[in-house]
Design a binder for these strands. Structure first.
Lengths: 245, 245, 245, 245
DNA sequence: CATGAATGAGTGTTCATTCAT
DNA sequence: AATGAATGAACACTCATTCAT
């Protein structure tokens, strides 16, 4: 787990073209040319089953406590086969992280889609909180992987989550720039990172605690966010017409 | 604003008096007779140096990546000696967690001491944020240990942090009950856990990121908390006279 | 006298056919399909070489003094490989015990085969003593393993040797029931366990002592056994016709 | 346990003179000169309590499984104190062995005292079997220590039990020489070692097995010994008058 | 591509022994 | 003498990774 993976994962940013050139065997870029499709499909299925197995085990036992053999076994595969797709254990964690990142980015884009610019603040934030809450509960390994990626990268800049943070922040930033065009850029950046962090971590914590508290926690999280943004909306004003994407 | 946090930080520092010279190593049983004080001091010093070494290594590499031998070596000790004081590696993590918990609780109590009940909201929250920020930067292993304790305990209820959560929440809850006596108890509970979680996690994240962002992040965290509590203060009112402890 | 023991000894040698090629390592599950025979042969060879190495070292140094690494090294293997076949050190001891037990039972059956029912007492006992003596000298670790198994099992009922004791006693018991059909069952049981114990332990001790004494010791062991059984033969009579198996 | 003890224990052979010179602190030679008696008594008491503790733990867990610390603790002492009396763990085992040897020899001498020369064979053997049986059940660690001593000494000649074997065999041999003066010396030696071994091991085994079988086993052991010696008595005759010691 | 036996450095832990107090 | 903290070599065992089949 400690050595650097020698494969750069570029999944958080959607590939510019549809060709699969340059991607490792574990990217999900669609295959336009038919010649190697079946083999790649089979490979993709294997990769997915390995990642699913890894996610399940990570959620149960934590990343460091799960052995590569255990992942292979749970995936109905063998170690050797697994090492055909991933150069080392870290790469599995990173690939999983990349998958989560992609999904997170997609989720974010979906929740903050252009027509939401004119939606009432509480509706937008409620959607965001519910959406991420749902994602977290559906992907219980998310936080384990997130933490592991932070740890692996020496604590500062995970090669994967770095991108997702950037990406999500950029999405939020852009959304805010459309909703409150007069807000200064730097200020907007802090609004983005503060709200993103609040949503991320309070939801992550809520999923660990007594589920009975969860609705109350979510209500207060929404409320906190609404109150956080309200003064900004009063100060900078909100657009009336949705921006044209 | 910040002079108050300085006061608070002093309270969080390990007390100079003998309050932590427990009976056996790693227990806190009171010392019945004074005869064995020197040996116990030596033991306590050893225990402390082990915990310090562990904390330093945990912060650098993460809990799971640090070997017991490495801790002993860094502590200027030997494995065998280490195992005199701790039955296994987990016990080291737990002891460190316990130390952090104690300090966290103390810090919290100091920051929310009775005379702060009538202080302006932003002063109180600023002190809290600065105080915890300072604690986090001074104890970079805090979060590693916290996470490890969560993982070890199967994710749900760490035997140590469970207490600190309880304790901190109770302290905040009590503070709020004095500041806004008419706020319903259940609501108060959610205010407490939401604000505690926000402070904890946003500060933890801020320490991992680019330090240049930190002041902006802290400013927004304070602002978010102020805005979160302001409506409650307007609704339930704030006492004018500090409660008698 | 001794030509019979030679016959018996051949029976105790590990069978040349595939009777011991069990399914998994160290289990004896039958092999459902033949497809994986080569790999299983390799595994069986490894298992055997590990057990041989263990036996040699146990005989030299005693079970507790031999490290798992030493066994692996002597077997020309590695620890990891060893742990592929045995879950822990005890399992090696037990597997060796099981091998010894199987061979002991086979030897016993061969020595007391049905046609020996009408053989002269001294011929039978001479064959038994010579046979077991030969087995002990060929397997110098036998007693170390036997003792270790007794120790491991808390002293009372080793899961492996328990069976061999039962089995050997039953074989002797059945032989006696055919040779002296009128002897009461309970009495027969004591004759069986006493003679089995005498053979076992006196031979075990003889192999530890000065080899020069050994022939004399064996002569006296046989004599003691003959004299032990003679009165019983006079009292209960001996059959004239061998039983049909 | 594996290095050679550098202290020779000479306890099996009664000291030629009563002075304690040359004995380690853990011999039991009586102290004639009064000057150091109290200190030596205290030391002797400590030594005894250590040996008692060791014996108890050895019987429970086996020699190799018992740590020196455990012995010290059970003896109400400390490791350091223990190491004042014994140079290493092996020395404890050997000292215990020496104690057992002395007692065994004494027991043997008592059971085969001169006036037993004319006693009926079955009475003598019954006494011997009962006596040793009683000794074994009263000293459950005996066999553990015996085996450990055999192992330690490379399997062939334990520095302690070697002597006791010699001594016991000599006692029996001498008894036989008085009971059957015309028996050839070499033959007598084999009678002695065979009967001693039979008594030793069959009783040792009987104490491990189901206690309900024990009376039957003892009855058959006596019977086997009686039948073993009877022909010799018929051949060589038995003296009528007890020898004068 | 697939397999899983093989590897061996590395881990947590124990324990006989020493030595400052 | 007595204590028990300190030591560190050694142990049983794990697991990421390789490679012959």
């Amino acid at each position: 787990m400690s050595q650097e993976s020698d494969i750069a994962i570029d999944a958080a940013a959607p590939p510019a073209d549809g060709s699969s050139q340059g991607g490792g065997p574990y990217t999900e870029a669609p295959v336009p040319s038919g010649q190697r499709a079946p083999s790649q499909d089979r490979g993709q299925r294997r990769v997915d089953s390995i990642l699913d197995a890894a996610a399940a085990l990570f959620a149960e036992q934590g990343v460091d406590a799960v052995s590569v053999n255990a992942i292979a076994q749970r995936a109905g595969s063998s170690v050797g086969s697994l090492y055909h797709f991933f150069p080392n254990k870290d790469a599995i964690v990173e690939a999983l992280a990349a998958r989560y990142c992609r999904e997170m980015v997609d989720l974010n884009i979906a929740l903050l889609r252009p027509e939401m610019v004119t939606a009432p603040l509480d509706a937008v934030l409620s959607g965001v909180v519910e959406g991420f809450m749902h994602y977290h509960t559906s992907n219980p390994a998310y936080d384990e992987v997130y933490q592991a990626a932070l740890r692996t990268s020496g604590g500062h800049q995970s090669p994967v989550f770095q991108q997702v943070q950037q990406s999500i922040r950029a999405t939020v930033d852009e959304y805010l720039s459309r909703r409150m065009p007069t807000m200064p850029s730097e200020e907007r950046g802090y609004y983005a990172m503060t709200s993103v962090a609040a949503v991320h971590w309070l939801i992550a914590e809520a999923t660990l605690r007594d589920p009975i508290e969860r609705p109350g926690r979510m209500r207060h999280l929404k409320e906190m966010l609404v109150r956080y943004f309200e003064p900004a909306e009063r100060e900078y004003g909100v657009v009336r017409v949705p921006a044209v994407s």
